[in-house]
Design a protein around this nucleic acid. Sequence first.
DNA 1: GTGCGTGCAAATTCTTTGCAATGCA
DNA 2: TGCATTGCAAAGAATTTGCACGCAC
Lengths: 142, 142
Amino acid sequence: MALDTDLITAELAARGLRLTRQRRAVVDAVAASDACLSPLEVFQAAREGCPDLGLTTVYRTLELLGEIGALRRIHGAEGCERLVPASTAHGHSVVCGVCGRVTEFTECDMTNVLAAARRETGYRITEHFLQLNGVCIECAAR
Amino acid sequence: MALDTDLITAELAARGLRLTRQRRAVVDAVAASDACLSPLEVFQAAREGCPDLGLTTVYRTLELLGEIGALRRIHGAEGCERLVPASTAHGHSVVCGVCGRVTEFTECDMTNVLAAARRETGYRITEHFLQLNGVCIECAAR
DNA sequence: GTGCGTGCAAATTCTTTGCAATGCA
DNA sequence: TGCATTGCAAAGAATTTGCACGCAC
């Protein structure tokens, strides 16, 4: 679940923004972890490669990365501020309840479910947020 | 999307807890609204029928109601602390992006999607969180 | 009486903002 | 020069905790 630095650079450039050393450290920290990290954890991890990084910058960068769709927030029991890299703007996350690892899942044909929802509620559905929880291969093998 | 007071009473009783006047005010406030409310909004609404209610009690009650599955948190751009009544422990919410109204949606056959997820990620899926966003009938008519 | 439940105030945690300094084009 | 970017410190918001009192069984 790597983050494409070139893509991020391009997205930022399109808005007149830059991928600075600090922002890159934040991106790398999120991309390097296969768990979902809190802003503070991102800060701590990113600091290893960029000791002069400030927490404020982490918050600002995370928001920015969220806007361009490079990050996704995980909906969990403690809230939904934990972050995970997203290779595409639309995709879903599968969270292992044992080790916390998160994997991306892109193939999703929700046609039937969305049609059923429309039938049951009358709403015109424009977006869906789906998150799966389960047990990853390694944890299942134990 | 009514909340069943008897059911809540029973769930609480099973844990040796009571549905007090304050707790009932919180339940009523959430049930009466068809939008998703923040804890503060619940507090303000619940106070109308229970002026001596404290914010602390609201937080404690919301957590309690969440535990027994009577409430569901909505995953939104600003976080996921906004609450909506849930008639069943498993169900999904459909949020109108125009007026903010939330409707419950219970019929969901995710079999195919879950199978695809298992195939793609190898995870054994145990739970899913699905939230739909769209436009409600009234807003669509305008 | 025994615990659950409560409100208030204080403490804590998390996040955002103001601002002067820095850096790159 | 012009504007994005940064860190620090302060401010602010949201949430939790400690505690003594009230209330139901």
